[in-house]
Design a binder for these strands. Structure first.
Lengths: 211, 211
DNA sequence: AGGTGAATGTTAACGCTGTAAACATACCTG
DNA sequence: CAGGTATGTTTACAGCGTTAACATTCACCT
């Protein structure tokens, strides 16, 4: 019976979740730097040390926030994949267009929540791989499966789907980072959306089944 | 004669450069978190506040370190482009192979100095675009010129070289970030070098002149 | 040469941070 | 109801970025 109330009772009532939730508005207001243990505890109406009952240290807390972000990103990508009506200019092959729609959704998510995205890929997590967010692997698996499906449909050439998924992810992630850093601005720079379409199309051509 | 000693005399003798130089070993030992004003001043044998005579705040100092990094990266890429003997498995078209060699050199640089690379693209700089390192634009221009050259040689399809350069940069940057974050590890994951070759080849195919 | 102002470095202090240690309370299980 | 464990608090410390006031050294001008 202990299991039933495991996530509910106690003093605050799931403070862990409250802390992670409090992280989002904090991030959006003050950027990654504002994501401090004390500010978080303050936002949750709790003493600074309370957070340490749920997270070993700041890195663990950041990892939890990142994990949460990847979960939302995953949901967003799944929605984009399933939605028949994506805001995509070129339907072309449905499956390929679907993958492009996923890429667009990915970029959109990152640009809507740049600070969260930055935390998700920030250096705090890279320190030790033990706290790597599990949901990140799920996002990657989702992408890899998409590639594999396109291979089965003969829309993508044969080859290690894992490597192609890495390449695709790298491309989109790189686009996002450049966009977030404000590096894409400047004379004659394309809009991020245009750039995403162009870049993904280039990669798609490269991955296409050779004629 | 005043001009001769412009970079030499004074109290410390070009403390600004000393601070930026001291940043590298500091970074390699303790990661981006170790790059603090006080530690830097300590390493330069100077009082904590001395650094503020040369940098408005920590962000400015980080920007200077990043700028230095981009300068070294630029030099590295130029060397890779000019060196006739790159460690490249597939010579294929010389020019295209050259671009791939540049990509490999880029990834190598980042993997050798992951903490510096992270600082170069860290969130501290993105805050305000005013302190964006100028040398980063030079690296990008270098890449864009390479693409434009390939277009003139008819090895790359027509199209906005700027957008293609963004796509290429994004791909390589994304690869680096994934590799640095230790995300590429795992069962059946390719080596970073293999992955770089695969990914750049995919993009090259996509950018190739259509038959 | 000598004086003057700007450039550079120092000291002291403030509020913020992460986190360890000791303590207090609420809850669950027996 | 008793005991233990999970949770939250208080206190404390060292390190950080940064401000303000002060000290020194150089560069230049007459």
């Amino acid at each position: 019976m202990a299991k039933l109330t495991r996530k509910q009772g106690y003093h605050h009532g799931d403070l862990r979740r409250a802390l992670v939730s409090a992280a989002i508005p904090l991030l959006r207001k003050g950027g990654p730097e504002a994501l401090t243990m004390r500010a978080l505890a303050r936002a949750a109406g709790v003493s600074p040390m309370a957070a340490y009952r749920h997270f070993a240290d700041r890195a663990a807390l950041v990892a939890a926030v990142a994990d949460d972000g990847f979960k939302r990103l995953h949901a967003r990508l799944r929605a984009a994949a399933e939605s028949p009506e994506q805001t995509l200019r070129k339907p072309q092959q449905t499956a390929r267009g679907g993958l492009q729609a996923i890429a667009l959704a990915y970029v959109e998510f990152a640009l809507e929540h740049p600070d969260e995205y930055r935390v998700m890929f920030g250096s705090e997590l890279a320190a030790d791989p033990a706290i790597a967010p599990a949901s990140r692997n799920e996002v990657f698996a989702f992408l890899r499966e998409g590639i594999a499906m396109l291979q089965r449909l003969k829309l993508v050439r044969a080859g290690d789907p894992q490597a192609m998924a890495y390449a695709s992810w790298a491309l989109v992630h790189g686009l996002v980072m450049l966009a977030i850093d404000g590096q894409v601005r400047g004379k004659g720079a394309p809009s991020t959306e245009e750039l995403t379409l162009t870049a993904t199309e280039l990669l798609m051509f490269g991955m296409a089944e050779k004629p």
